[in-house]
Amino acid sequence: MTCRFVALGLHQTDMAWSIHTFANPTRFMRFSAIVLPYVWALAGAGIGIGLYLSFFVAPPDYQQGDSVRIMFVHVPAAWLSQFGYGIMVASSIMALIFRHPLADVAAKSAAPIGAVFTFLALVAGGLWGKPMWGTYWVWDARTTSTLVLLFIYLGYMALWVTIEDPNRAARVAAVLALVGAVNLPIIRFSVDWWNTLHQPASVFRLDGPTIHSSLLWPLFVVAIGFTFFFLGVMMVRMRAEILRRRVRTLQMQQAAG
């Protein structure tokens, strides 16, 4: 009895959602189809020009030699790992408060891309660390909090995978994203604290004013290219997600009728 009741409830919320669907996501499908080619072109241009600049124009660093070129992967990836979480949090707020039907699609689509760039930031950081520090992995503050960020991304994605009903999964995942946003600064602070406790000072620093401006420009161009790549993949994933929900509603309608 309760089981049938629940099934009926799910069905009703699905119908309500599908009415929403025709209002907004259709417009997004049209808009993204027009915009996507330009986004891909900007991503390709940014990455192409950036690669040229970073290999042929940027000089080797006076301390680190050519190994500094790994920065052109590492820093943009690290930037997008933060950017991705920012998008997830903003979309989750939109999803929870305004119930915007596109917001949870955006949050779900941003997560795997953010996770991939977090992974890339860690890998490139390790490959940079080996010649610089003599080891692929150091438990320094930034590496460690990036690793925790990756775990939070993966947990968020795991939640989406395990909950079947997209409406419920969307709202539960949004709660997790916001709890994560509240906790991330605390985690970051605690990891910094832990680091100073175990490794007082004299850690090799990757950032700050030591980067020469001749290296900064190519970095900037690659970062812009990567950001457009992020947006392009995100739009493709959003389109796929909207269609996936349409498939779900159609299947339910055909099963019922």
């Binding site: 050519d66 890998v123 490139a124 490959l127 940079w128 010649p131």
Partner: peptide
């Protein structure tokens, strides 16, 4: 790349493959 070749090329290659 001044001896850093393997590290540089593998980081760019991994990025290209994963992306």
């Amino acid at each position: 790349m001044g001896g850093y070749g393997p590290y540089i090329w593998s980081s760019f290659l991994i990025a290209a493959v994963v992306m």
